Simulated scan of single mutants.
Amino acid sequence: MKMRTMALGATLAAALATGASAETLRFGHYANTSDTPHKAAEMFAWIVDNMTGGDLTVEIYPAGELGNSANSLQGARLGTIDITVTGNPYFTSFAPQVNVLDLPFLFESPEHAYRVLDGEVGEELMTSINEVGLQGLAFWEIGFRNLTNNERPINTPADLEGLKLRTTPNPAHIEAFTILGANPAPMPFAELYSALQTGTVDGQENPTTHIYHSNFHEVQKYLSITEHAYTAAPLVMNQAKFDGLPEDQQEALKVAGKIAAAYERELNRVLETSSLEAMKAAGVEIVMEPDVAAFRELVAEKTRAMYAEKFGDDLLVKIDALAPSAQ
């Protein structure tokens, strides 16, 4: 009996010790619960929990509950929240080199983007993020961006003339739409539905899955599949918080981030077709083959030159070398 009591006591002590060391991380992001970033966040949390035996858990706060994208990113830097994921353009003010990923018509395909993000260039860009109080865990994605608006179908650059479009805060995006004759209006993603509904802006540009799962098709009449830019979404964590975790938990966060990235990418590919079909059924007029070459001719070289003037062309050369057409 004494031995059994001692064994039970030891088991209880171990359980209490485990409970004392357990930690919960707060993960805030911008996306709705039906959208793929949230699905990836759920996968990420599940993997972390399982890899650490419950010693490290992740609580997810979707749809801007902990602040819009800019505020969440700043919160992760300051440590008021632990983890966030948001579009690459929101890193502009403190890690501007990563804006190379957002240049119009930079990537030939999703596979081209993934070669870049998962290789040497991605590591170099993540290092620049790590230098500003954030630990980069993985590159998730927003995806290839397409245009919607309430005024007219967009077939050529001329059709954009005078349209007020919500864009990201990336200087290359703003410059590109200015060249194309639109009036770019950066604003937080969380404010966009209302802005479209009230006519504060005429349109916006986001990947097909984002457009559908954010219900923008309810307040937009026209969609053009321009795929004019790709947007990555770095998954980042407060650096001090990360550094304070045991090595096995740090490794779990990195592994979970990369697995969830692959999961999100696959979800986006699968859902693109169904999202298009659903929006067409809802009455959105879709231009499947706008004159993409005309858009590219006007903005691609000018925005690349603008980036190269500030940061050089080393990364651009490396990215071009990974294109399918260069293999």
Rank of each mutant, 00 (worst) to 15 (best):
I225Q: 02
F44L: 11
E285I: 15
Y263K: 13
I47E: 02
Y263I: 03
R265L: 06
F295H: 00
A190F: 07
A260M: 08
N170Y: 07
P104Q: 04
Y230L: 02
R265V: 01
E124N: 03
K318H: 11
E161H: 03
A300M: 15
A278S: 00
L245Y: 06
E141I: 02
A261S: 15
S214M: 10
A261F: 08
G9A: 08
R26S: 13
T208A: 12
P290C: 03
A233I: 01
T52Q: 00
L235C: 11
W140F: 06
S194F: 02
D55K: 15
D320L: 01
V132G: 12
E251L: 07
A300K: 05
L276A: 03
K221A: 09
Q197E: 07
L253I: 07
V317Y: 03
L137D: 05
M306R: 11
R296Q: 12
I211C: 09
P324I: 06
Y61N: 12
M51D: 09
F311P: 05
E65Q: 11
D291A: 02
Q74R: 11
P246W: 08
G136C: 13
E23R: 15
H210M: 04
I47S: 04
A185N: 13
N215Q: 15
N149I: 07
K164W: 03
I174H: 06
Q220L: 11
V201I: 05
S325H: 11
P110Y: 04
P153K: 10
M187T: 05
V255L: 02
G136R: 10
